[in-house]
């Protein structure tokens, strides 16, 4: 009987102790992170959406089409289209596609990249309405100069040496000219981009002309001169990206690009 009473007493004490511990918790500050309102503080090495760097200083595209990332990817979600430039005999990047619906964000591609071109950004909000929209092409992947310099600084990557060879520069207009159109669709802080836009416009004008001369085959597809609304530079970007890319672009919902694409057809 006394055993019963002591046991009952002990049980009640233990229950009250538990209740007290729980009740005291109500005086502590909640640990909830109210995510959409406040973004979580992500470490620089967080493995988020994949992106391609440009040289933070010169705005050159860093990809050299070595296909290391394509080869190492365990999911085979990277697809690089490149061709050998006839006059320089060097690889030229035409398109770079990553299927983020397939990617498992292991970050192996970023480890093997010799030029630190492909990186994991801190962006993780990639929800979309269709699987096709998760296939990012080079326009969506390439970062602006400002973003690149941010990631170079955050990840403590050594800045790349400026490329000495000229022909490599010819790749850049393809990617950089599209950026103004893309800047509107992206919800990233806009200040950086608006600054960089006019600069790009200036720097591009020369190489763009050089290239159209070098590729006579493309000149015929581009023969319509009445694209008056957009300047001649964005127009060039399309002609470079070849028929196969036009198809995928039509799926993407970027209105600016779409309207111009229709003109080509």
């Amino acid at each position: 009987m006394s055993n019963l009473i002591t046991r009952a007493k002990d049980s009640i004490y233990q229950v009250l102790r538990g209740l007290k511990t729980v009740a005291v918790h109500s005086l502590r500050i909640p640990t909830t992170k109210e995510y959409p309102d406040t973004m979580p503080p992500l470490p620089p090495h967080f493995r988020g959406r994949l992106a391609l760097n440009v040289n933070p200083e010169t705005n050159e595209h860093l990809c050299i089409s070595c296909r290391q990332c394509e080869r190492v990817c365990p999911d085979k979600c990277i697809e690089i289209t490149a061709h050998k430039s006839p006059e320089t005999n060097k690889l030229e990047l035409i398109d770079f596609k990553i299927d983020h619906g397939l990617c498992m964000f292991c970050g192996l591609c970023t480890e093997v990249c010799p030029t630190d071109c492909i990186i994991n950004t801190n962006d993780f909000e990639m929800a979309d309405y269709s699987r096709e929209a998760l296939v990012y092409d080079i326009r969506k992947l390439t970062l602006t100069q400002g973003e690149s310099s941010h990631y170079f600084a955050a990840k403590e990557i050594a800045l790349p040496k400026p490329k000495p060879t000229k022909p490599a520069v010819t790749v850049t207009p393809a990617t950089s000219t599209v950026k103004p159109a893309e800047a509107k669709t992206e919800s990233k802080p806009a200040e950086v981009k608006t600054e960089s836009k006019p600069e790009e416009a200036k720097t591009e004008s020369k190489p763009a002309e050089v290239k159209t001369e070098s590729k006579p085959a493309e000149a015929k597809t581009e023969s319509k001169p009445e694209e008056a609304k957009t300047e001649s530079k964005p127009e060039e970007a399309k002609t470079e990206s070849k028929p196969e890319e036009v198809k995928t672009e039509a799926k993407l919902e970027e209105t600016d690009i779409k309207s111009t694409d229709n003109d080509i057809k």
Partner: peptide, 8 residues
């Protein structure tokens, strides 16, 4: 319960 479990 949120109060007791340090949530919101």
């Amino acid at each position: 319960l949120a109060l007791f479990t340090v949530r919101m």
